[in-house]
Amino acid sequence: MLSILVGVLYTAGVYMLLRRSILKFIIGIIFMSNATNLLVFISAGLVAGKPAFVNGATTNVSQLADPMPQALVLTAIVIGLGMAVFILALKYKYFEVTGTDDLDQLKQTDSQK
């Protein structure tokens, strides 16, 4: 189930990336970031009903989930949060300055001068 969700998220992300609006582009990036986090989680083994925390009582390793992907995904989520805020702030500024939300307007820096 979750793997299908990852596929859907990636598809939606790529579709959004190909849109002309910058805001949709950013939404696409956020989709892709979440899809990647889930992908890491699933590929590294996501199991239901097993915590990754050891309290003195549990001694059987098979009752525990691998804590590594949880740590990885947590870090990745934090980084993704920072990036999302930064790119949204950037987009907001860009909108204020130019009043446009169109990716096709983003061609001044590539023009021959």
């Binding site: 970031s33 890491v40 590294a44 083994g45 990745a76």
Partner: peptide, 16 residues
């Protein structure tokens, strides 16, 4: 950013 996501995805698969 897209580069970073791809890196992370590759890394997750490798860990898996």
């Amino acid at each position: 950013l897209i580069g970073s996501f791809l890196f992370l995805a590759g890394l997750g698969l490798l860990y898996g």
